[in-house]
Amino acid sequence: MNWDLLGQLLMNGLIIGALYGVVAMCFVLIYKSTQIVNFAQGEFLLIGAWVCWWFLTTWELPFVVGFLFTLAFMTVFGIVLQTVVLRPMIGEPIISVIMVTIGLSLFFQAGMKWIFGVNVQPFPKVFETETVEIFGMMIQTAYIMSLGISLFIMIGFAWFFKSSKHGLAMRATAFDQQVAQSLGISVKNVFAMAWAISAVVSAVAGVVIGIVNGVSDTLAFIGIKVFPAVILGGLDSIIGAIVGGVIIGLLENFAEYADGQWFQVGNMYTIAPFYVLVIILMIKPYGLFGTKDIERV
């Protein structure tokens, strides 16, 4: 047993898992409030990271300014996307809605490749020191920042849904759209807000991962990795998304460790979460915290 390596990998798993949790939370937010399964979640990360990269390199803005511009851009992007593409799909069968988001994901992924190329582009240096030592493990500063940002976003979400007016409106809409509408909540605005928040928060995650690994179209794969996390946690549970994200993050790193130490089959890091996904769907389709969908005739 190689304890140092295991510890390092589990630490990575925790940090990456927290980011998965954040992206999964955005996914759940959209699913809960608008009943749309967003297969283009990964593209939000991709677009956010590329736009931020573009602000920082081409325009040479300082990180904070560029980052804020990115967030503003993503807000507009989320609202426009919801209004133009997703609003006509209200009331359509679930197959159509799923396929619209798949079409969008293909469109944006290819578009980003077209505009920014297929090569990995490093982010400009954001921090002075590259790594910090904690408990005898070398950890990148960006990872610490990412963990901090993830925690901050999670607390922010909790506050937003528990105590703000808009959060309450969103919860009401998620509970029952017609009742919410009859109480004077603008369901249209709630939908647009859900997409905007989801796009912004995903972009934050995208930028954080971009700082650590560089920006490339592999970022969009996070959007697919999110599925095991949300299914594990339960599709309509925000807490479940965070727990699921962390578990999947830990699991894939542990799978890689176990593979490297004992099995030697390779590629476990990518594929293990999908095996878990199938197993969960077979034995507990509504996940750990999801609401059971009971049908009565």
Partner: peptide
């Protein structure tokens, strides 16, 4: 150089447009 990406984009756009305008 971007023609391959444009092809993919058009496929994605075709799916979206057909679902909105001609389901």
């Amino acid at each position: 150089e971007g023609i391959n990406f444009m092809k993919e984009m058009v496929i994605g756009a075709a799916i979206v447009l057909f679902l909105i305008f001609e389901p």
